[in-house]
Amino acid sequence: MSSTLSHTAQPTDTPATGTARVKRGMAEQLKGGVIMDVVNAEQAKIAEDAGAVAVMALERVPADIRKDGGVARMSDPNMIEEIIEAVSIPVMAKSRIGHFVEAQVLQSLGVDYIDESEVLTPADEVNHSDKFAFTTPFVCGATNLGEALRRIAEGAAMIRSKGEAGTGNVVEAVRHLRQIKNEIARLRGYDNNELYAAAKELRAPYELVKEVSELGKLPVVLFSAGGVATPADAALMRQLGAEGVFVGSGIFKSGDPAKRAAAIVKATTFFDDPKIIADASRNLGEAMVGINCDTLPETERYANRGW
């Protein structure tokens, strides 16, 4: 390192966009926060006022996608642009799994993050999109460590649990987070000889498996998604190791969205303080009704989508 004062030196690099550090770093800025599903500009403003760190712009919340059936696709660009105009916080939007043209469209609209999401109907039953081909970062769902690392190997800059979106039932998100955490803990104990077999077993690149073994965490930010409906749900996910929370149908399918949204934000920050969570849970009105996941037929389980 030279001993001269650096302010006399001229910067040498030209600015680089879309680097791994910029993409992953964006997710780091969302940590400790709540990302809320919104279907119009009005809801986006309510979310922002409640303290959301970002909004997910989509035409129908997962609960309605379940109810309506049919093919669920990327949202109308007009609707996404209206939401981008309405708020100053980051705006995310969903593409179908493997539908890289929807992702290209979302990038051209200037969304801040693309969710390659199992909540929409998959467009490719074998391949996910090549996320390195984009400047816009991607978040992807995972039910276990191998799936998370396969998505990271494809360029995902953030991982979320899949949960079972649109059910108001947190049981699947808990399962996914526990699974990912347990598998990471197991890797921590492995020596170098064992990591090759572990990579094979996880169906994930050896380099990423080794990195997780050394870090004791994913190399990208891990959020919870799917089924969070109450402040206590959000705090539960954080105590289980999620670095932040996506809330989909749980807010705008409830009795008093503004109040519930603010309450979930508080509980996400003070996830380890039961008194604050209790206060946040008072008089929120009706929560979304919810669906018991064990009555969901296999074909309607979003968590099975993606590979």
């Binding site: 910067p11 690099d13 030209t14 600015p15 680089a16 966009t17 879309g18 680097t19 550090r21 910029v22 770093g25 964006m26 980051p90 990038q107 200037g110 969304v111 801040d112 993050y113 400047t135 816009t136 970062p137």
Partner: peptide, 8 residues
């Protein structure tokens, strides 16, 4: 926005 985020 994020697409313009950069390193320098």
């Amino acid at each position: 926005r994020q697409n313009e985020s950069f390193e320098a």
